[in-house]
């Protein structure tokens, strides 16, 4: 359990909130970084089936502009992002999710 969680955690090993205090980024940022470690929602909640009919599940990944939320922001793992993408594309065909926001 722990092992898998670590490997799916996004955020480039920034650790848990406040775990590492001040972080010296390569870009010269010296202020303390408090960034929550991102974990794939589907791995954490053990959602195996990403279904195109499940609007409640998909909507958080389609923000206002109706674009698919990138992995680097949501922290979704590659496998689940792929499944999510298919589900969203199917839902779009059925006009459940918009392609664009007008």
């Amino acid at each position: 359990m722990n092992g898998s969680k670590r490997s799916f955690g996004g955020g480039g090993g920034r650790g848990k909130t406040g775990a590492r205090g001040a972080q010296q980024g390569k870009d010269g940022q010296r202020r303390p970084m408090f960034r929550r470690r991102k974990v794939c929602k589907f791995c954490a909640d053990k959602i195996d089936d990403i279904n195109y009919k499940d609007m409640k599940l998909l909507m958080p990944f389609v923000p206002e502009r109706a674009k698919i939320l990138p992995r680097r922001i949501s922290g979704t793992c590659a496998l689940h992002q792929r499944k999510l993408r298919t589900a969203i594309m199917r839902a779009r065909q059925l006009a459940l999710i918009p392609y664009t926001a007008e």
């Binding site: 969680k5 991102k38 974990v39 929602k41 954490a44 958080p60 922001i73 949501s74 922290g75």
Partner: peptide, 13 residues
């Protein structure tokens, strides 16, 4: 207690 996936915070970064 674990830092789990948290959508709103992930969004506004």
């Amino acid at each position: 207690r674990d830092d789990r996936f948290d959508m709103p915070e992930g969004l506004d970064r």
